[in-house]
Nucleic acid binder design. Structure first.
Lengths: 113, 113
DNA sequence: CTTGATACCTTGAACCGCGAGGTATAATAG
DNA sequence: CTATTATACCTCGCGGTTCAAGGTATCAAG
């Protein structure tokens, strides 16, 4: 039989997923994203800056995000926004997540298939 | 403000969750669990033996599972079953998961809270 | 008698989230 | 005026986990 086929990174990448999703709505900067995830999830999810910044850099390097400096109130911020590639990445990740979450939910609910 | 509070291991531990859930129904052995996850999830999730066995051992060492040898058709199997502690662990993990999945789903659906 | 399925196991690499720590500026409090 | 808090960026190292690959052994089938 042999079970091959690998999980596309399984449960990893939730921060990445949420960041992409937030940036789909509007451009945001790192510090803002940290709080948006916290408040937007009713404090269920808390990712620190030590998670967000590296993800942001990685995504930009992959061409999923682009950034621009902007100074507001004497504060220098780096705003990130989605590129087309980022949009596709979001769509793919999002679909994978739904798939996975659905499967887990079924098994938890009483999958004795 | 400061955002403290740590995520109880976020998206990790899905294999552990599913294993506990399966063993809640009936006692099973490692090799069987690998296939049960595969088929029970319509092949969405595939965890290898290299994942299952260590988790099994860890859970037993934590007192969440107990095991007994059993020989069937000349084949030696190690059947695992849930202890009360394991039941509690399942309940906790399960609730954490639902919480998290719910939060993510909301944010994906259009949480601009 | 050799292949494939069953059944157990460990090891090493890789990844990722996390906390801690570091810098700097603006606003607020004492 | 000065000290603390909030804003805003960043990196490093630890630890936990998944994963592929490989190792052993038995049994059934071709």
């Amino acid at each position: 039989m042999a079970i091959h086929e690998t999980n596309p990174n399984f449960m990893n990448g939730v921060p990445e997923l949420l960041i992409l999703r937030l940036l789909q709505e509007r451009e945001m900067y790192g510090y803002e994203i940290v709080q948006a995830i916290h408040s937007g999830s009713q404090a269920v999810i808390a990712v620190g800056e030590g998670v967000v910044y590296p993800v942001l850099h990685g995504l930009e390097q992959d061409g999923a995000l682009k950034s621009r400096r902007k100074t507001v109130n004497g504060r220098s911020r780096i705003y990130y926004s989605l590129t087309p590639a980022g949009g596709q990445r979001l769509a793919a990740l999002s679909s994978t997540w739904s798939n996975l979450a659905g499967a887990i939910h079924k098994m938890l609910a009483g999958a004795q298939a």
